[in-house]
Design a protein around this nucleic acid. Structure first.
Lengths: 217, 217
DNA sequence: AGCAATTTTAAACAAACGTTTAAAACAGAG
DNA sequence: CTCTGTTTTAAACGTTTGTTTAAAATTGCT
């Protein structure tokens, strides 16, 4: 055999570094952590980080794109169902809060790193068309034309959804400090905030819907 | 005279460093920039940063608290008017979008730095009571008791407001890249998004208000 | 002018950074 | 066991980091 010994390598060490890097990068950002910190978190020597992944920058790109992917995947398979639009959006909100409860730091991570002057740049067409391919946008336009959905451009709809899902997790530290509430209290807060957000968004986007006639409280 | 010469010092150099630090810190965060970068932005020698402000950390605290103050002040004098609550919230949304158009990076800055494990910690009671002292929360409870405002806890109300104001500015880079729109296009987007947010929030918080009967576009 | 205090500078400091090296430890095949 | 390629280690690399130093320039006062 020529060089098939290489195939077994990708299990332990490389994956441990990848996992540690994911945790550290997402928690602290690219410039907020060091190669040695990642190595230590993985229980490895510093040199191994560059042995498996050429450089800190190269490793970061891998982690970032994976995070971006996880985030996208979570929304895509909600949109790929064939429920009515309103139910799809309800499910999206459910899923989003569920995802964010599990990975609350990912939106900050993506937003910060993409906002940096010298930050990462994604293939914009890929992400957008990935979502558009689910037909969700077309579906919105159909509902809007039928008068069942409020006439708002797609961009604003997505910003409304993202704002009300992601911000409560991104600003958790500030909100907890300002309102002087504990971690457990804020978790409960988030549960009821999800309900409020759902009521508000569905009520606003589908003004005539039967599901929000006198559903206040 | 003993040592009154010191009084004139605070005009030029010190202020230039402060201004440069504000710009650089807010744009890149504490760990995203260096002392030398700040000095260069101010056109000064590195040592002067530590001559006027003991350390990078000390300078950062000053900048952070100033940013926090600016942000608070902007909302406080809206709440200190004696307009009806609904008008107050409308004005708040106006002011917030105006402020954020001018300083779009401040929310990210505050949220990121306060979210860091070893990040800055504010005097939580100070900020909260500063807002409470305007009577805005009491006013909400009065309106809620009178059945004119939806029964939602104060925390959720503030989170709703902040989410829909701050997030569109914080995530600007991501949204622009994903939707493939230019800076100018996104500015227009924000103008109409403000209107949408206002309609939605007012409509949700004051369900019976005359100002949102059939105001859909 | 001359003097004392303040402000600015260039240089240096140790520590930490990302990255590379060269040798050691390990694995599998003959 | 030996040999070969892969994985891991400790050490060092040249920079850059925040900070300090000590000398130079500047200022304000008499």
């Amino acid at each position: 055999m020529l060089k098939l010994t290489k195939l077994k390598a990708d299990s332990s060490t490389e994956q441990k570094i990848r996992d540690a890097a994911k945790e550290v990068f997402i928690a602290k950002g690219f410039s907020g952590c060091t190669s040695r910190e990642i190595a230590k978190a993985a229980g490895m020597n510093v040199a191994l980080v560059n042995y498996y992944f050429r450089s800190k920058t190269a490793l970061f790109k891998i982690i970032f794109e994976a995070a971006m992917g996880d985030f996208l995947l979570s929304m895509l398979d909600v949109f790929n169902t064939d429920l009515p639009l309103e139910e799809k959006l309800r499910n999206y909100l459910d899923r989003e809060y569920e995802f964010l409860a599990k990975y609350p730091e990912i939106p900050s991570f993506i937003i910060n790193e993409m906002g940096r002057k010298d930050g990462v740049h994604i293939d914009n067409t890929a992400v957008f068309e990935c979502i558009e391919h689910t037909g969700i946008f077309a579906e919105c336009k159909v509902e809007q034309a039928a008068g069942r959905m409020r006439e708002i451009d797609i961009t604003s709809i997505t910003v409304l959804m993202m704002s009300n899902c992601q911000f409560p997790f991104m600003a958790a530290a500030v909100i907890k400090q300002v309102h002087g509430i504990s971690d457990e209290q804020y978790e409960k807060q988030l549960v009821q905030h999800k309900q409020i957000v759902t009521d508000m968004l569905i009520g606003y986007l589908f003004p005539g819907s039967i599901s929000n006639q006198k559903t206040q409280k």
